[in-house]
Each structure stands twice: as structure tokens, then as C-alpha cells.
Design a protein around this nucleic acid. Structure first.
Lengths: 237, 237
DNA sequence: CATTGTGAAGCGTTTCACAGCC
DNA sequence: GGCTGTGAAACGCTTCACAATG
């Protein structure tokens, strides 16, 4: 059996919350807290305690009744479950505003996702230095993904191109061997079903906020009471 | 009654998909298509046709049986429902990598969210020009939100600060009168329940991808068949 | 007669409530 | 006594299946 997975199938909704718990647990650990109850964790994550317990129960029975969870041990278990026991280098396609910001933002590397490379079609961008990386030609994608130069193979690609170029970028990534894609372009990517895609569309987030803004405005105009849709947080909901 | 809202309560899941439909409809319109069936729309959005019909039915009965939906009219109705009949200026707090990228990225303005201002605590950043905007002092936040200088009042704020500064930024935004916040910092913001928050955490998205990557690797190592979690798209799931 | 609009069934997620255990 | 782990109930969302209809 593989050492990193107990083979349990974890609900998608739970998987989406585990990174949040992990972040909180690491915070707690760094401030010297070594035990946490489902209720504290729930408060910090902005969710319900039963949900925390059920979520964590999918990983195994790592709590102690009457006591809570040992923070350090739980961090280890959540990391293991998420596959964060090793770094995952990422390659970024598109060195425009967003691509540059992502490559220059140290937070990625700090959280286990070092930038293995950034590529662009535009020859005028090639050679540009951003953080630790240098913009390379799209033709170098294969080499970057294969690894070499001290880096292992890359399985995660980030599409940070304008919309019209996104499908081409995804095709190149898939062809190069990437099996997960984080897509910032506002288009549906067509990829083999063996490839995972997550999409982040910043304008969509604003449009969702606009909906609730507008509802509130309409409700206020009608001198009616509060409209829901308050401070539930986490876009992935 | 308010002219912009029929007062129906639309499920959150539907609200999150409407911007996607809207994007596709605008694309279709621009390429000269003036009628679309729920099935075509569903294909383009990567969802099921029944879901499209049910989603659109929350807005009203705007389709024609045996024919489909008139693209232009549907665009108008979706826009109205999302509150996109007018622009929503946004103010960005934090002029680091991400804040600069967001301010410099024309896509926001193009989609109805012009940048009314960008502010930062750091005096060395103040005065920096990014796109059409100039970085101003955090102290100018109130003035920016109030409007003036041709802009109306701002109700949407974007938090693009490092994690430790995010709560302070949110407090200032709320105090200035902002009622919706898009938060890019990896922290839970504490705000009054009258304020909407959506959170986008790029590292979380990568961690979710990592989970499925790791599952796949584990499954392959065990010479077992495919693990699910394929190309379902849209992070907000 | 193609396609919408929608009750009703199905399914995944959340929440409750409490037995089990430290 | 306090807190976890978890069946079972409640809920919301998705999908089915078909009657309604231009």
C-alpha cells in the first residue's frame, strides 16, 4: 500500500476545507498552542464544530475524547492527506500582470509550491527576471516540466494568459505532461478527464459580490429588513 | 418595488454560476448567435442542461419552448439580476505584487469593476502609478470610498495585503463604508454581518490540486484504476 | 416536435444529538 | 466532566423525467 494515502475517499467539500484547517493549525502551532478542540478550530475557521469533527474523522481518529486534538500531530496528518509531504513545483504560462505577480509572490514557494518556471509566447518578455525565475520561451515548457536542473518533474501548471490563449496554453501543458491545472483565464478548458482543473475567475467573484450588494440596495430601498448573504466566507462554497 | 430585483431568492449555487453563463452569452452574442438552447449553453459552461434551465428559471421564464433563449434578452436579464446594470467601482488595499497586478489588469474595468483607487500603508509606495491609478495613502481611503472626483461611492473593497495586515485593512474598509469585500489574504476576516466577504486563497487552490495529484499518484503506484476528481471545473464548487 | 419549465426523486453535505471514551 | 466520533435527520442542490407549449 502507498505510504501517503489510507485510501479513504474524502468528500470534495471536506477536501476544500482541509487547507483552511491546516493554515489555522500551523498558526496555532507557531504561537505555541499544542492542543485544540473542534470548537476552537471551528471558530477560527468560521464553521460549525460538528463539521470540523466530521471532516477530521475522514482522515482517521486522531482526537482524544475529553481533550481535543494534538496540533502538531494533526498538522502532520492533514499534510499527509493533502499530499503536502513534499513540494509541488509549478510552472506558470503567461508572464503578463497576473503571471508576474504570481511568480514574484513568495507566498507560493513558502507554502510548498515553488515556481519551477514561467513561460510566455511574447519574445519581448523572454529573459525578464521575476523573483527567482526568468521568463522563458513557451518552447521550453517541455524541458521545464520534465525537470532537470535540480528540479523534479512538474505536475501542476498555472494558466495566466489572456482568455484567447488559455486553451492553447492548457494543450501545451497537458502535452508536456502536467496533470493538474490552475486556470485564471475566464474560459472553460478542454482537457482529458485524467487532468484536474480548478478555475479562479476574479471577475466572477466580484460579480457574485455585486449580486448581494444589489440585493441589499433593493431591500433597503423597499425599507425592508436585512437580506442574507452576509459574512459567510470562502469563495469555494 | 425596486426596479432591479424581482425579489426572488436565488440559491447561492445558482448565483455563483450566473456570471459564467453571462460570459458565455456575451461571447455568443459577439459572434452573432442570437438564440441558444439550454443544452448548448450547458455544453459551453461544462454543466448539465437541466441545471441551466433550473438556474435560469429562478430569474423568470425567459425561454421559448421548442426554440430556446434569446441571447440578447437573456444577457440583459442576467445582468439585471446580478446588479450589473451599472459599474461597481472597487478600491484596492495593498499595493504589493498582487495589488499592483489587480490594479494594472484591465480586465476588471472591462467587466464593470473600475479601480477607483489603490492605497497602501508603506510611504515608499505612495505616488506609484499603476495603470490609470496612483497609489495613495491608507488615510485617503475614506475619501476614495465616499467618491468625489467624478466617481460615485465605492461599495466593494479588495484586500490584497499580507495576512497580518488584512484584518486592519478590512476594518478600515468597513469603517469607510464598504459593504462587500474580496479578500486575497489567507485569514478569516472579522466583519459585521451586514458586510459580504468572499475569499480567494491561491495557495488553497493549489493544495486542493495537490490532494488529487497525490491520490492519482497513490492509485497509480498501487496499479489501481483511475481516481475520480478529473476535469470538473470551477473552483467555487 | 423540439425545447422549456418544473414536480419529484436522488444525492451529497450539514447539522443535530448523543453514545462512547479518556 | 468534557470532548470526540458518528448514526440519523434535515437541508440544499442536482438530476430525472415529463407535461406544457410556442
Amino acid at each position: 500500500m502507498a505510504p501517503t494515502s489510507r485510501g479513504r475517499r474524502i468528500p470534495e467539500a471536506t477536501v476544500a476545507r482541509l487547507p483552511e484547517y491546516l493554515r489555522i493549525l500551523v498558526d496555532l502551532f507557531q504561537t505555541g498552542t499544542n492542543n485544540v478542540s473542534s470548537e476552537e478550530l471551528a471558530d477560527l475557521a468560521g464553521v460549525n464544530a460538528a463539521k470540523v469533527r466530521k471532516d477530521l474523522s475522514y482522515l482517521g481518529t486522531y482526537g482524544t475524547r475529553g481533550v481535543g486534538y494534538e496540533v502538531e500531530y494533526l498538522i502532520y496528518q492533514v499534510r499527509r492527506e493533502l499530499g503536502l509531504t513534499h513540494d509541488w513545483p509549478v510552472v506558470i504560462v503567461g508572464a503578463g500582470n497576473l503571471g508576474q505577480a504570481l511568480a514574484g509572490y513568495g507566498g507560493f514557494g513558502a507554502r510548498g509550491f515553488p515556481v519551477a518556471g514561467i513561460v510566455d509566447l511574447d519574445p519581448s518578455k523572454i529573459g525578464l527576471r521575476i523573483g527567482d525565475a526568468t521568463v522563458r520561451s513557451l518552447d521550453d515548457l517541455g524541458a521545464i516540466v520534465r525537470g532537470g536542473l535540480g528540479g523534479g518533474p512538474v505536475s501542476i501548471g498555472v494558466v495566466a494568459t489572456p482568455a484567447p490563449a488559455a486553451q492553447g496554453a492548457a494543450d501545451r501543458l497537458v502535452q508536456a505532461g502536467v496533470t493538474s491545472i490552475l486556470n485564471f483565464a475566464p474560459v472553460l478548458l478542454n482537457v482529458p478527464s485524467t487532468v484536474s482543473v480548478r478555475k479562479v475567475d476574479l471577475a466572477v467573484e466580484l460579480q457574485i459580490l455585486s449580486y448581494y450588494e444589489q440585493r441589499r440596495a433593493a431591500a433597503n430601498a423597499a425599507a425592508a429588513p436585512r437580506v442574507p448573504g452576509g459574512s459567510r466566507q470562502g469563495a469555494s462554497a
